[in-house]
Design a protein around this nucleic acid. Structure first.
Length: 569
DNA sequence: GCCGTTTTCGGCCCGACTGTTTTCAGTCG
């Protein structure tokens, strides 16, 4: 798909225009276009062929021509010309926190600084001193920014962010001055990756809270400290922002700090249309306060149904909320079981009995024990002999259980040609067969797609696990033709997994939304290797919700009988 | 550059904190 490429070009154009000091609204138009293209669930080439490019929000006459220009000859003339007008490396300078377009331009105009290494050298030689507007503190901030950029910790996985946030929230919640507290930002929206953590507090006495905030044990640096807003960086280089408002503004502030940016802009536009003003302190009519205590009352005033944080991306949810037509999203309590768990039999840390009892504590009706298959020796894959013993163990345990069932499963390996590493007569014995790619990641897009498609066509494969193979900090998602995979999955009644393991979150929410559009049902699995990890299921649910999924889109919500019926292909 | 029950022209979300030029521009979210 050319979507990402085109979005990248538009974003670059926006950055170049920023440095050149162009009309800020023109810049925003490019940014908005880039964002909307990135979020498309369809191939932009297909939209173009169908003459539907202008249906993309933020794409008008000019940008649609530029998109078509790119699809036709792989280049956009305006972009090529803009690139010539400034050194390409300047865009790299913009990535430094605390350095914006004005500073980049200043550094280039005065000192011909074109890259990060130029900048470092200039600082070392004290060449920044004496430049109008730059003094000691600014230089210090630039150096810190470069250090952060180099560490490459720009974003962290959702799970890590959630755990860090918990430490802060738990410490602050105890203070008597704290009336209400919540995380906000992309963490509350449950994005797969999070840049920094926002914590919002309602209080009439902010000072002691701020004092505690900057002294929480894991804080390394205090980046900014004001009366109502402070920022710190933890020892793991995670930025945490804390904001304190009065109780009557808590809802407005929560709405504002949860975002997303585009969502906020649209909400404020709705307020303006009604002659009102919306900011983080409330919804106002001239000088009068209309609402602000809770998010609910603001939505109501704006004539909108409540929009769940996970949907707040301005991808159609506001329009549906105005018509009260939002989907009822999947909830954690709808989940009746986990469909991807490892036990001691392969590379897990707990016995089947231990896992089964942990699952029952979560209120589940079933759990699939999907140990690795014989092809994956490094992960303790089971031989045919071991399978027999494992099956017998499960049967014995199941006899003792009431209202709960352990499902006999496997995570079978899809080999480099797309064949399963157990024969069909072995596969058909399992209640649940989860199939996954564990090697040969560097194959071409066509080869990788064919492997997964082949697996879907196997009569005994129920679920494709972690379909894109993304492993945070280890490897990128591999290039797949997702639409083709989804179509075959739909035709063959194969389910796509939302792998809830922290470093995976795979499929991601965009895939989920597309899968649903194409009629695919999804299965959530934690890929637990330790029974305490069963709780990760909430992150899988979060991804599903961000993908607009309802309980009928996810097979883990079925009763045991319905599930077993659904798994027959 | 987009977009339209205010408009095809003239708008485009809004505020906190920092550093520095001391009244405000730049950056960020």
């Amino acid at each position: 798909m050319k979507n990402t490429e085109i979005a990248g070009i538009f974003r670059d154009i926006a950055r170049i225009l920023e440095i050149k000091g162009a009309n800020p609204f023109r810049i925003r138009a490019y940014e908005r276009a880039a964002q909307n293209i990135e979020r498309l669930t369809e191939d932009i080439q297909i939209l173009s062929t169908a003459g539907r490019i202008k249906e993309i929000p933020g794409i008008g006459e000019d940008l649609s021509k530029k998109i078509e220009e790119f699809l036709e000859n792989g280049k956009i003339k305006t972009y090529e010309e803009l690139k010539k007008s400034i050194p390409a490396a300047l865009l790299e300078l913009l990535k430094i926190p605390s350095v914006g377009p004005k500073t980049v331009k200043l550094l280039y105009d005065k000192l011909k600084i074109k890259s990060i290494s130029d900048l470092e050298e200039a600082i070392q030689k004290n060449r920044l001193e004496g430049i109008f507007g730059i003094k000691e503190k600014t230089v210090e901030n630039i150096l810190k920014g470069i250090a952060i950029l180099k560490k490459g910790k720009e974003r962290m996985p959702l799970v890590q962010a959630a755990l860090t946030a918990e430490e802060f929230v738990n410490a602050l919640r105890k203070l008597p001055e704290v009336k209400k507290i919540s995380v906000a930002g992309s963490l509350r929206r449950k994005k797969e990756t999070v840049r920094d953590i926002d914590i919002l507090i309602a209080s009439e006495h902010p000072q002691p809270i701020m004092d505690t905030f900057i002294k929480i044990p894991s804080v390394k640096d205090v980046l900014a400290q004001g009366k109502t807003k402070s920022s710190v960086r933890t020892r793991d280089d995670v930025q945490v922002d804390c904001r304190i408002v009065e109780e009557k503004s808590f809802g407005a502030a929560l709405l504002y700090f949860t975002g997303s940016k585009n969502f906020n802009i649209k909400l404020r536009q709705i307020a303006i249309k009604d002659g009102w003003k919306l900011n983080e302190y409330g919804l106002f009519k001239k000088n009068g306060f209309l609402a602000g205590r809770s998010e609910e009352e603001i939505f109501e005033r704006l004539g909108l149904a409540y929009i769940e944080p996970e949907l707040r991306e301005d991808t159609g949810e506001i329009e549906l909320a105005a018509k009260s037509q939002l989907p009822e999203l999947l909830n954690l309590k709808d989940i009746r079981g986990d469909l991807h768990v490892h036990s001691l039999w392969s590379d897990g840390n707990n016995s089947i009995e231990e896992i089964s009892s942990a699952a029952q504590k979560l209120g589940y009706s079933y759990i699939a024990i999907t140990d690795h298959s014989q092809g994956l020796k490094v992960a303790g894959g089971l031989t045919l002999k071991e399978l027999k013993k494992k099956k017998a163990e499960i049967e014995k345990l199941n006899k003792k259980l009431k209202n709960f069932r352990i499902l006999y499963g496997t995570e079978a390996d899809i080999d480099s040609k797309g064949n399963m590493d157990y024969k069909d007569e072995v596969l058909k014995e399992f209640d649940v067969v989860v199939a996954a790619i564990h090697s040969g990641f560097r194959q071409s897009k066509q080869q990788l797609t064919r492997r997964i498609v082949n697996a879907c066509r196997n009569k005994y494969v129920h679920i494709i696990a972690h379909p894109t193979g993304r492993l945070w900090g280890v490897r990128e998602a591999y290039d797949l033709d997702m639409d083709e995979i989804f179509k075959v999955a739909c035709d063959t009644n194969t389910h796509m997994e939302i792998n809830a393991f922290g470093e995976r979150l795979d499929l991601n929410s965009q895939h989920c939304r597309r899968a649903k559009e194409l009629g695919v049902r999804l299965a959530i699995g934690t890929d637990s290797h330790e029974s305490s990890q069963l709780g990760l299921i909430r992150f899988g649910v979060a991804i599903a919700r961000r993908g607009w999924l309802t309980s009928t889109d996810v097979i883990n919500t079925l009763s045991l009988e319905e599930l077993l019926k659904k798994l027959k292909k």
